[in-house]
Design a protein around this nucleic acid. Structure first.
Length: 94
RNA sequence: GGAGUCGGCCGGGUGAUCGCUGCAUUGCGCCCCGAAAGAGGCAAAAUGGAGAGGAAAGUCCGGGCUCCGGCGGACGAGGUGCCAGGUAACGCCUGGGGGGCGUGAGCCCACGGAAAGUGCAACAGAGAGCAGACCGCCCAAGCGCCGGCAACGGCGACGGCAAGGGUGAAAGGGUGCGGUAAGAGCGCACCGCGCCGGUGGCAACACACGGCGGCACGGCAAACCCCACCUGGAGCAAGGCCAAAUAGGGGAAGCAGCGGUCCCGGGCGCAGGCCCUGGACUGCAGCGCGGUCCGUGCGCGCUUCCGGGUAGGCCGCUCGAGGCCCGUGGUGACACGGGUCCUAGAGGAAUGAUUGCCCUCGACAGAACCCGGCUUACAGGCCGACUCCAUCU
């Protein structure tokens, strides 16, 4: 979890990672901003999925994403993916 | 050139790499039917091509479509509200009328009925719905007082008046002349108003046309109400099709079980009756243990088929009151005719990410069954028509 997102992960019995999104209109303001945020998260997930363990990962947006730039969001997500990978490698359950 | 009005249009562009969702073609592979030939379906991957808006928004109106309801009528409820036209329809649009604003182009108006009824109007003010008299004006008649023999003169309100002042959103027509004690539609002229008629207009309505009436029928109906017209309800989670696993005291058939009634035959008995084999019709979910509840035991059969239905899948789902161009009719909204084009169809929901270049440095904002409107949000820009002001020739 950081200023922009809360990430929850749990190992699954599949071959690859699975992404869940929780982005509400309450957080983003309008539908356009909500769609943009979801696309950014999903694209970042796509680019990093090779390093992620087989787990179900839920990304929830927090209110501060509203004033964040795309660059900041991508950096934040890259950090979070690494954290997830590390924690899952350490303990099989989190 | 400056200021402004109206109408229409656009809503960053262009590459590279990696991705997303349909579609078309090819199709590794797989499923299914079949004896086979072959038919059908799913589908990795590749290639090609497409992929949010003018408001996609608010969900405020109107329609299509779908299901349910419906003989007809009355009442109720809701809506609309100058007239005519357009339209599938509208609370929309166009043209016209009336009123208001603006020098003007133009803009704004819920704009039917207040002499059917009920009701409302703060404060101020003398008086606000059967109008009224605070200040004021006037003493002609009558009255009172004073003077006078009297005629008469003077003063006055408990008399007359409503012009002027004042209050108010609003005070029961306006101007002028006559008139009068002072005044007043009291009379007259013009203007205004109402009614009747005429003329023009499909109509709303208009008329420096005629007549009548001295003249209110003050305002509010987004107060009740009256009048005219319109409206059945629910919505794509509508609705339709296919259809697991599991459950089911849904249905049918066959077999089996227990029971009832009747019958054929046989046996026993003096008889009532009892027993056995078979047949026809028919019924069947409870019954024990326990004082009771809780609890617990046994049973409610087995097989096959059918139906409903859940998960899931498919359809509805995008070719349409469609866009563009031209012609014809019309002041116009629009209609008709011809040509041409196909332009998102997702389903927890597809348009993104990184980056190069350019410019005027990019606003409001994301389709969810589909259309027509309205309203609201919006950086910046383009085009056309028109108005006013200034200036030049």
């Amino acid at each position: 979890m950081d200023g922009f997102f809360t990430v929850t992960a749990r190992p699954n019995d599949r071959a690859c990672a699975r992404l869940g999104l929780a982005v509400s209109l309450k957080v983003t303001g309008n539908a356009v901003a909500r769609n943009r945020l979801r696309r950014i998260v999903r694209d970042s997930f796509r680019l990093h999925q090779h390093m992620l363990p087989a787990a179900d990962i839920v990304v929830a947006a927090r209110p501060r994403v509203r004033e964040a730039s795309g660059e900041h969001l991508r950096a934040s997500l890259a950090g979070l993916w690494k954290k997830v990978a590390k924690q899952c490698a350490g303990s099989s359950a989190s």
